[in-house]
Amino acid sequence: MTTDVTRKLDNRSLFIGFFQIGIVGFGGVLAVARRAVVEERKWLTATEFSELFSLCQFMPGANITNFAFAFGSRHGGLRGAAAAVSGLLAAPLVIVLIMGALFQQYATVPLVQHSVRGMAAAAAGLIAATAIKMALPSVKQLRSVLVLAAAVGLVVGFHLSLPVTMLALLPVSVALAWRP
């Protein structure tokens, strides 16, 4: 895919571009990244973006940092990847660490305890909603329901570790998906 790149971006523009994506992306960065990379900066066409992003979603790891890593390295090798990823994470990392430090400092104050407890309950609801959205497409086919239920059963019911769960499920899931 390296041949798709018509003009090489320098590390500075990579850092600045991804810095701006990181600072505005609340609760998921995909939409922001898409707008910045495709529409505003025209670094990739819509198709190129979907192609690269679908890979990053498919591959393990944090999708958006995978994306920054792959995109940056196309332009400037490992240094480009470092520029893009550190641009993406610099501001959010500083902010989240300040919040984390404040939380550690005041974790014993009842007022803080109660509000963070409420916030944790809401955050659990957010992830539950995400999980429902992501699980819904699988409910349409029996094979997917089986694999999905098996994953939940292995992780929650049997407390199997992630490697063992993957090792057990991936071959089964591939075999079930292997239909003409």
Binding site: A124, A149, M166
Partner: peptide
């Protein structure tokens, strides 16, 4: 093949949280 596994893992994450 990956999609239902991902769905199951995230449901488990939601349950635990």
């Amino acid at each position: 093949a990956i999609i239902p596994i991902t769905g199951g893992l995230i449901l488990s994450a939601a349950y635990v949280l």
